[in-house]
């Protein structure tokens, strides 16, 4: 009887849709942190087979990020710095720091299905979108909320998004990026999740350009550390040549 009661309560609580913006804020909070250090791998499917790139990133807040390439050998030591809406790259072979702007930002990163612009985007979705819960859904065996996001501003690259958020873990399990008119442009699918420092995070996901045929780009997180104190000097162009 007791058990039954609690199941019923849980079920009702789960089906009662939360407020969209509040849910989105929880999603942001789940991955947000003052200082994060991430080691990840990107596996890119090209026409001649796959290749992978390993990077280590230091992220502070929403607008500062510093990334260093660890592998492959050829790209080791290449660094990227994002400060707000500006992006620089440093290549050790040429010992040049080059500012990436305009047209270049739309190029794909390392041949992947993601552009520099995609990576430059404000990671805090609540800053860009207002959200509404469409209803309950599920991804695989996980119950989820389907969330419709609409851009608050006109300049946002993807005017609409649909997120499938794990009901218990505040974690995006699947994502579709759409144009204002609802045309599907890009998809992201979570392949596996893991628990890191008490948070549930996607540690393997595949990004695909929905208009193009191709194998997509897989991102794997090897390690992630939250609330790391990152020295200020990391986020300066001088550190690129360090």
């Amino acid at each position: 009887m007791n058990i039954c009661f609690w199941f019923a309560v849980l079920a009702i609580a789960a089906v009662e849709p939360p407020d969209g913006n509040a849910l989105l804020a929880r999603v942001d909070a789940n991955i947000g942190s003052n200082g994060k250090v991430i080691v990840s791998e990107m596996i890119i499917q090209g026409r001649r087979g796959g290749r992978s790139v390993r990077t280590m990133s230091w992220v502070s807040g929403t607008d500062r990020a510093f990334t260093e390439y660890l592998a492959p050998e050829r790209e080791r030591g290449t660094k990227m710095l994002k400060l707000g809406d500006r992006l620089w790259t440093y290549s050790p072979q040429s010992d040049r720091t080059i500012s990436i702007s305009g047209h270049m930002l739309r190029q794909s990163v390392a041949g992947s299905d993601l552009s520099y612009e995609d990576m430059m985007e404000d990671p805090k979705l609540t800053n860009l979108y207002s959200a509404e819960v469409v209803g309950p859904d599920s991804v695989g065996d996980r119950p989820a909320w389907l969330l419709e996001l609409k851009a608050r501003a006109e300049g946002v690259a993807y005017q609409r998004r649909r997120l499938w958020v794990d009901r218990e873990r505040d974690l995006i399990l699947r994502e579709e990026r759409l144009s204002a008119a609802g045309r599907l442009l890009k998809t992201m699918e979570v392949l596996s999740v893991g628990r890191y420092e008490g948070r549930w995070l996607a540690d393997r996901a595949v990004f695909r350009d929905a208009l193009r045929e191709g194998g997509g780009t897989e991102i794997r997180i090897d390690s992630i550390a939250f609330d790391v104190v990152i020295p200020e000097h990391i986020f300066s162009t001088a550190s690129l040549r360090r």
Partner: peptide
């Protein structure tokens, strides 16, 4: 001068 291009695998290529 520096050439900013991409390798045949799509990675960024920067060369003087």
């Amino acid at each position: 001068l520096t050439l900013v291009s991409s390798t045949m695998h799509g990675a960024m290529a920067v060369h003087n």
